[in-house]
């Protein structure tokens, strides 16, 4: 007997279930089976779905890919894809939850550094695809100098790490490098107390 025709919304939900969770029960009865079974036909779409998203993850996480090998990466990606789908058609945005997934993924629990590598790669990925900031127009700087307010611009305190970090506890390293909370508080006090009038 012919199954009742589903609405488009129902059909699209059923095809989604077939792709994501490999559950064909909702979609199979509606697929023409001439020459090839619905399962064989659906497998073509499942392959594309999984390989496109795996490739997107590989492009965003090249170091993780190298660290765990191609075969393992693919396996991990397929498990991840089932739990985390793209929310947008722009695949550069896909995979923000991958580091958290790796942190809880038992097969890589012995690689304690792997989630951190992934977090770093995601931040790099975001920076690569971020919109460029408008650079400061040099004419504006020149105008400030002519107006005699150039000294305003000198009002900053440099807080930066100038040496390679050595070994030690985090708090000790921050203090030794001159970027601990104490240094920041002192720097703000210095700026606030230098009091050459407020901003114009």
């Amino acid at each position: 007997m012919e199954p009742a025709a589903p609405s488009l919304l129902e059909l699209q939900g059923a095809l989604r279930a077939s792709l994501v969770t490999h559950d064909d029960r909702g979609i199979s009865p509606h697929v023409v089976d001439a020459g090839m079974s619905p399962a064989e036909r659906l497998e073509v779409y499942r392959n594309t779905f999984a390989s496109v998203l795996t490739t997107a993850l590989r492009l965003s996480y090249p170091a993780v890919h190298r660290l765990v090998s191609a075969e393992f990466f693919e396996g991990a990606a397929r498990v991840f894809i089932e739990t985390s789908l793209p929310r947008s058609a722009c695949l550069d945005d896909y995979g923000d939850e991958f580091p958290g997934f790796l942190a809880g993924f038992e097969p890589v629990s012995s690689l304690a550094y792997l989630p951190d590598v992934a977090r770093l790669e995601w931040v790099v990925n975001r920076a690569l695809h971020a919109c460029d900031a408008e650079p400061l127009d040099p004419c504006r700087l020149a105008a400030l100098a002519e107006a005699g307010v150039a000294r305003e611009i000198e009002r900053f305190v440099h807080l930066a790490v100038r040496d390679m970090p050595g070994s030690g506890k985090p708090a000790e390293l921050l203090d030794a490098a001159g970027i601990s909370a104490r240094h920041i508080v002192n720097a703000v006090r210095e700026l606030a107390g230098s009091g050459r009038g407020g901003h114009r």
Binding site: L8, Q12, L15, R16, Y45, F49, A56, R87
Partner: peptide, 25 residues
Amino acid sequence: SFSVAGGSYLADLLPLPMTEEALAI
């Protein structure tokens, strides 16, 4: 074709049923 179902992007150009309902949509 369609690529979005349930708010998720399914990363492929998926087939539509050729129905009056799909045509209107």
